[in-house]
């Protein structure tokens, strides 16, 4: 048996079937979210289209269902499927934004800490340690609370995503910084870095051009795994009421709205968004774990 010589591209990636399925699932959810503007039957952000008479209609496949609303409607008469597609888009955008911001800050500070060492290193890493001593949610609540107190418009649909991205990234960057710092220290001791130091290149250029490409592998892996965590944090914050407003719901907001009605027998508003969230996070985690093992030379099985 010889997988390397196989012409089939899917076989050549060499991922187990579970990872393939997870990747497919993640692609479907992300695809639906990105194309929500075209795929969704209604625009859930346009309040003028809501009819209270359509409120709380169960999913189409139940006895009382309405074929116009595949997964039913919420308490305002909003189509749940459309709201979920838009909601997933918001969740993924905020999660992705938080990961990008956290990775940028973390890689930047990690490079500086690892390259220069000494006091700069101690300062950056101790700040990171202090931040890590707060629970993610507590810190995010603190940030969004302060933002809302300072800027009255912070709760609006335009500003809330930015606040959320910052609130999540402020905790997540530390992990990137620690990883990049360790990798940078290893690379800095290598002869190729010494060689460019002897040539006389400035530290900025050595870090960005010579060291950075060599430390990016682990960063990409952490980013994938953190994407799932960031989406979850966003959902938690929205569920707690400090995230996206009900007029522009994310998956977390939808779950919060649904939560109020669960005991009145209106189960679908909470269930479907929750299921989507679970599947998305699971799929991304499975792919991320596989990537981590694949890029970790210590776990790579010898031929």
């Amino acid at each position: 048996m010889n997988t390397l010589a196989s012409p089939n591209l899917i076989m050549r990636i060499g991922a187990p079937i579970s990872v393939m399925l997870a990747a497919l699932l993640a692609l479907v959810i992300v695809g639906c979210a990105l194309l929500a503007g075209w795929l969704a039957p209604y625009d859930p952000t346009d309040l003028s289209t809501f009819e209270l008479i359509n409120a709380e209609i169960p999913p189409a496949f139940t006895a009382d269902g309405d074929s116009r609303f595949l997964l039913g409607t919420d308490n305002q008469g909003r189509d749940l499927l459309s709201a979920m597609m838009y909601g997933a888009r918001v969740s993924i955008a905020i999660g992705g934004g938080a990961v990008l911001l956290a990775a940028s800050i973390g890689v930047f500070l990690g490079l500086i800490a690892g390259y220069f060492g000494g006091r700069i290193d101690a300062l950056i890493m101790r700040i990171g340690d202090v931040i890590l001593s707060f629970p993610t949610i507590l810190l995010a609540l603190l940030v969004s609370g302060i933002a809302r107190a300072l800027f009255p418009q912070a709760g609006t649909a335009e500003w809330a995503p930015l606040i959320l991205i910052c609130a999540i990234a402020i905790h997540e960057w530390v992990q990137y910084a620690r990883t990049v710092r360790a990798a940078t220290m290893v690379e800095t001791a290598k002869d190729y870095v010494k060689a460019v130091k002897v040539i006389g290149l400035p530290g900025r250029r050595i870090m960005l051009r010579h060291i950075l490409p060599n430390v990016m592998g682990p960063v990409l892996v952490i980013a994938t795994i953190n994407l799932a965590a960031a989406v979850l944090t966003e959902a938690t914050l929205s569920f707690l009421g400090v995230g996206m407003p009900p007029t522009y719901p994310s998956l977390g907001t939808l779950i919060r709205i649904g939560n109020e009605f669960v005991f009145s027998g209106i189960w679908w508003i909470a269930l479907f968004p929750a299921l989507t969230l679970v599947l998305l996070v699971l799929a991304v985690n499975v792919v991320g774990d596989w990537l981590r093992d694949r890029f970790n030379p210590k776990l790579r099985v010898k031929r």
């Binding site: 010494k194 060689a195 002897v198």
Partner: peptide, 25 residues
């Protein structure tokens, strides 16, 4: 401080040929 021609003047060759060239460039 070694800048310009003074920095250029002294260069170095290292022991381990496997770590002395950046593998990504």
């Amino acid at each position: 401080r070694r800048v310009g021609p003074l920095r250029q003047a002294i260069q170095m060759i290292f022991q381990d040929p496997y770590s002395s060239l950046n593998s990504r460039i």
